[in-house]
Design a protein around this nucleic acid. Structure first.
Lengths: 138, 138
DNA sequence: CGACAATTGAGAACCGTTGTCAAACTGCGG
DNA sequence: CCGCAGTTTGACAACGGTTCTCAATTGTCG
């Protein structure tokens, strides 16, 4: 699935600012936890806009590709998304209600880099998510 | 669907050792990386056994529940499984060729638990993967 | 303004996974 | 040794999320 390549072979990248893309962006601005594509689609509808589900998927994929949203998978394997605050961080997500806490751990960053370098790997990146049940859902 | 309670109070395991379960176990013994349920099903078929796909899923789920196999999800959200040799560990994966190195870091385990507990979360689990370009692909 | 590629949407197609339910099997008590 | 009751199985349908198709639209740029 690396085929979210939208720039044609001619190097002409033309991402147009359309009503639909604005609607997705607006919806993303309306919450700060992780939501599924369908939930985001519902949100857009509630906001009075009309955007096809396929377009929501396409737009989210493009935004994730551009690094403007974080996409990860919940324990059921479903993709969930949210707008990404620039800094690198991880998430502590409640399995039950989806509440999200951003956490950061310099030690982990250092550890992953050390491990990878130790094995000769370059261009290191990593993903780390923590799941649990939050106090309110217990 | 959280309750997969299978043993009665009398310590009498209600899980019967059947031909099918033995076949799944045998297949699991035949590889040491993560495979999808369907690949495992194919393996069983190649070994000459005949087990329904649904049964493979059920058996894998039961084994995972019993802590005898690890189940995680690949980037496409598909479940992949592997017999769980020993300790919990993570993977350092080459983006280009897919080569995988198993790594473990007690510090990370401790850190995730600490962070989660600190925020009042319970039933903690986490996912961590490191990506990079291996020496051979540089 | 006009041509043209990018974009969209409705629905079908896909595909992994789970549910259904009658038939087969297992262990146990009699 | 036999039959009962509960477990397990398998073929297949159902499901749900995601992607594909393709004709119709819509920005963009010359």
């Amino acid at each position: 699935m690396t085929s979210t390549d939208q720039s044609g072979p001619a190097g002409r990248s033309a991402v147009r600012p359309t009503r639909q893309r604005r609607a997705v962006a607006a919806a993303l601005a309306g919450f700060d936890d992780f939501r599924s594509a369908q939930e985001i689609h519902d949100l857009i509808t509630e906001q009075g806009d009309s955007v096809g589900l396929a377009t929501v998927y396409r737009t989210l994929a493009a935004l994730a590709d551009a690094g403007e949203v974080d996409m990860l998978r919940n324990e059921d394997g479903e993709a969930i998304w949210r707008s990404c605050s620039d800094a690198h961080h991880h998430h502590l997500v409640c399995r039950a209600c989806g509440a999200t806490v951003e956490v950061e751990g310099p030690a982990v960053e250092r550890w992953t880099n050390a491990i990878a370098t130790e094995h000769g790997f370059a261009d290191i990146s990593h993903t780390l998510e923590i799941f649990g049940t939050c106090p309110a859902c217990r």
